[in-house]
Design a protein around this nucleic acid. Structure first.
Length: 449
RNA sequence: GUGGGUGUAGCUCAGCUGGUAGAGCGCUGCGUUGUGGUCGCAGAUGUCGCGGGUUCAAAUCCCGUCACUCACCCCA
């Protein structure tokens, strides 16, 4: 069947060089997560739809349903859906395996997730997230809320992402403030205020009034949303607005603690920003959002928050806090906007040339010797003219070509290896030859355009 | 789901008010009997998204459809 192949919207695929770049990111993320003692798990791709919809029950989460094509109408069973994040499956996992886990339980999880929303720049239907979470039994110590973004900051400091800001807010601040103002539709208000960056203060004010707020209440919401600071001075700024509510007090204290810890451990990374509201609806306290400086149009590349009642079996509640790197969005942003890629489109550092098919075993032996010492290499597929074999390497970005020696009229000739970037060619022995560490793996590079 | 834009060579695109398909890059070969990149010469490649309509004639005009894309919603 010769059907035309076309891309599937929202299901991106990378070419080899970019996939190598993504793997570099994934390797770095995993390494830092493990350095911080997070333990790996993987959950199945599907959950019962009922669980995915959760307590909220709002069906507009754009969940992909799953069913057997051969299933007939009677064959109902549990309805399954692909998970749309890693936190909900994790909460279920904790409940299911609580008896065998050690609390507080720190885990990391790097997997694909699916959302049926309309794709756009940086928004896919299938994408990879890298999550860390900590859950405990009954109560969760607040210092974990400061730890999460600091781990992320360490990940990002090892990746070529440039400058970034992790913005932190606390849902109790907005909720307490709105209630103190006399506004009851917390989620609705938050949603409108969240558009501030996009549509401006005047439009937000108009929308708030349209939704039933008074001019004074709208002004209050905007004033709160304007507040941001990289220290705890935001507390006084909020106090100055003259709104009082016990939930607001709680939120201010919690956020102040997070910012204070952040300041002492990694100055300049965390910013209290009282306008940020995004994130899933199960967050109950601290929420995080991360923007790359210059990449604001792509939205947050890393978000999360604290959830107090996501995992509960009725008797025991396991509160948690977590944060998730949007690996696909981050990598695509850097590829598309900053021309990031890798120095070659294969892991191979060396191409071992083949003189003629009779001597292919010699070339294979060279490759085996190199691999034994951790040097990635491949043997030329065809005993072409050396010019063509060099071009084969050049196309792929392989930096070295190995020429096997042998016997000719002038006697025994040693192996030689050529750096095809500089043209330098030297005699070499496959059991001792080394290349600079920088050449061993594909390097991250920026395309000059 | 709603609204806008776009579908022509592997890629980026040109092709006016209809006259039978082009450029650049890339690719293949040769100059260069085993050492590439530059340069020169030669060459290959298209159901012009799909279906229908108008017409002597459609990539071009009309209708439909599909896909991609941007925005809204929502979010990594």
């Amino acid at each position: 069947m010769a059907t035309k192949v076309t891309p599937l919207s929202g299901f991106p695929e990378l070419l080899p060089a970019e996939r190598l770049l993504e793997l570099h990111f994934l390797d770095t993320i995993r390494e830092v997560f493990e350095l911080h003692g997070f333990t790996p798990i993987e959950t199945r791709a599907v959950e019962p739809v009922e669980r995915l919809l959760g307590q909220g029950g709002d069906a507009d989460k754009e969940i992909y349903g799953l069913r057997r094509l051969a299933a007939d109408d009677e064959d109902k069973g549990a309805e399954l859906g692909l998970h749309f994040d890693l936190t909900v499956p994790f909460a279920r996992y904790v409940l299911e395996h609580a008896g065998k886990l050690d609390f507080p339980f720190r885990r990391y999880q790097i997997q694909k997730v699916w959302r049926g929303e309309r794709p756009q720049q940086g928004r896919f239907r299938e994408f990879t997230q890298a999550d860390i979470d900590v859950v405990d039994v009954g109560a969760l110590a607040p210092h974990f809320e400061a730890e999460m973004p600091l781990v992320i900051a360490e990940v990002f400091s090892r990746l070529p992402v440039g400058e970034f800001h992790i913005q932190v807010n606390n849902r109790k601040i907005t909720e307490g403030f709105y209630r103190g103002l006399g506004l009851t539709d917390n989620a609705g208000t938050l949603r409108i205020v969240d558009k501030l960056d996009k549509i401006g203060a005047a439009n937000v004010r108009a929308l708030l009034v349209e939704s039933g707020a008074t001019e004074e209440q709208a002004a209050g919401c905007l004033a709160l949303a304007e507040i941001r600071s990289d220290d705890t001075s935001f507390v006084d700024q909020v106090r100055a607005l003259g709104v009082d509510h016990p939930v607001l007090d709680e939120g201010l204290a919690e956020l102040a603690a997070v910012i204070e810890t952040g300041r002492s451990v990694a100055p300049g990374v965390l910013v209290a920003d009282l306008r940020i509201a995004r994130g899933l609806d199960y967050y109950t306290g601290t929420v995080y959002e991360t923007q790359l400086v210059g990449g604001e149009a792509w939205g947050s590349v890393c978000s999360g928050g604290r959830y107090d009642s996501l995992a509960s079996d009725g008797r025991t509640t396991y509160p948690g806090v977590g944060i998730s790197i949007g690996v696909s969005r981050l990598v695509h942003l850097l590829i598309d906007n900053r021309g990031l890629t890798t120095s070659r489109r294969t892991p191979a550092a060396v191409l071992v040339a083949v003189t003629d098919e009779e001597s292919r075993p010699h070339s294979t032996a060279v490759a085996t010797a190199l691999r034994a010492r951790g040097i990635p290499c491949e043997v030329a597929p065809k005993a072409d003219r050396f010019g063509k074999q060099i071009r084969y390497a050049d196309r792929r970005g392989i930096p070295y070509v190995w020429f096997p020696g042998g016997r000719d009229d002038s006697g025994e000739r040693p192996d030689q290896v050529k750096d095809i970037r500089s043209g330098e060619q030297v005699e070499a022995d496959p059991s001792t030859w080394v290349c600079p560490d920088a050449d061993l793996r594909p390097a991250v590079v920026t395309l000059t355009r």
